[in-house]
Amino acid sequence: MEKLYHEALLDLYRHPLNKTRLDNFNAMQTEHNPLCGETVEIFIQSSPGGQVADIGWQGDGCALSQAGASVATEQCKQKSAGEIKNLSTDTILNLLGLANLNPSRQRCVGLALAAIKNALAT
């Protein structure tokens, strides 16, 4: 039962990574999850070579969305838009040990990654 809320996930929930609003950014995106009303804002500063040099996020939500945003932003650092395109919600779910999460909660985990992809696509 408590596998979903395992220690590593709870640690990311209590101490999220990269949860900051960047002072300087050249891409920004807000994404909503209509199911629960969560909103995630993503800020990206790209390097001249097109890699993600710095990334931050803001937003309040459930433990899964907070952990998902932490892992997604970590995974995207120093990656190009092309490399990030290949990341999927499954990547984040696997990294969080949540491969069997039900579909409605998968949206919570994938919200930040969707915002990052949309930020880089615009």
């Binding site: 979903l4 809320y5 629960c36 969560e38 309040d60 939500g61 459930c62 433990a63 899964l64 969305s65 909660r105 919570c108």
Partner: peptide
């Protein structure tokens, strides 16, 4: 606690 987590548990 976010209400989503409450309901999930």
């Amino acid at each position: 606690v976010h209400p989503h987590d409450t309901a999930e548990i």
